[in-house]
């Protein structure tokens, strides 16, 4: 490797910029002062106690977990269909169908949310957690399809053919051979879409019925300066949680690549 002290230094600065706000989270979450500013006042865990005592927050967390579990499951299942169809079979209209599924990636989310809202209101479907799930599946699906397509692509076709030659049916081949091999991809798709759903704000805000949702609740609380420290405590836990989820997803992704004998070409997206 060539030495590049200038670029190396820049890389460190860039990471500091990226991680700056995230480092601030725990720093002030444990700081004994209601005002978030320097100098630090000493160590306290009272913001965490205050956060755990918040009944609204518990409700919001429960709602968000319900939404994220359902959206991640549905998006991943639909993603398996789409990935299998595009990788394994040839059929006319493939670019159009796939393009439509991937559209939410290149459309401002506000427009997706408002379009859905207009339709839901006009056909009289009441807003609820269910309508949030409908929206989340839509915006999670492109990510699931992208992750799962690469998982299906690294699959060796001859394994399937061998199984069919040995007398297994299409379905049993899929269940016994294909599914176990792409399982790491499925898990990493589930974890990624779960994280996206937990974090998502616009759809949760506009397609909800006023029930507390985690991201919406956080958004509201930041308007009251007195609530900021306990939100930083919550943020600290959420960041830790996200990093764990990602590390697990990355582990499965790599194991999937190793299983199918592929070469690692980098992270998500």
């Amino acid at each position: 490797m060539k030495k590049a002290p200038f670029l190396g230094g820049y890389a460190i600065l860039y990471l500091l910029f990226l991680y700056g706000p995230i480092i601030i989270l725990p720093l002030f979450a444990f700081n004994d002062g209601r005002i978030v500013a320097f100098p630090l006042n000493g160590f306290t865990t009272r913001w965490f106690t205050e956060m755990f005592a918040d009944a609204q927050l518990k409700k919001a967390l429960l709602n968000s977990l319900t939404i994220a579990l359902s959206s991640a499951t549905l998006a991943t299942v639909l993603g398996v269909f789409a990935a299998r169809a595009t990788v394994r079979y040839r059929w006319p209209g493939k670019p159009a169908a796939l393009g439509l599924i991937m559209v939410p990636l290149v459309l401002p989310e506000m427009i997706v949310a408002m379009a859905l809202l207009v339709v839901l209101l006009s056909i009289g479907i009441p807003l609820s957690i269910f309508t949030i799930i409908l929206g989340h599946v839509l915006i999670c699906m492109p990510f699931a399809v992208a992750i799962l397509t690469s998982a299906f692509q690294s699959l060796d076709r001859s394994l399937e053919e061998a199984s069919l030659d040995l007398g297994e049916t299409q379905w049993s081949t899929f269940r016994l051979i294909v599914l176990p091999l792409v399982m790491p991809g499925i898990l990493s798709s589930f974890l990624i879409t779960f994280t996206i759903s937990i974090d998502e704000f616009i759809i949760s805000n506009f397609l909800g019925s006023g029930q507390p949702i985690l991201s919406v609740y956080i958004f509201g609380q930041f308007r009251f300066p007195a609530k900021v420290p306990s939100m930083l405590a919550l943020g600290t836990l959420l960041v830790l949680f996200s990093i764990c989820m990602l590390a697990i997803a990355e582990y499965f992704r790599r194991r999937g690549i190793a299983k199918t004998g592929g070469k690692d070409t980098g992270g998500f997206l």
């Binding site: 991680y19 956080i218 930041f222 943020g235 989820m245 990602l246």
Partner: peptide
């Protein structure tokens, strides 16, 4: 950092 809560 991209995967940590956007609102936060």
């Amino acid at each position: 950092p991209f995967w940590t809560s956007y609102v936060i």
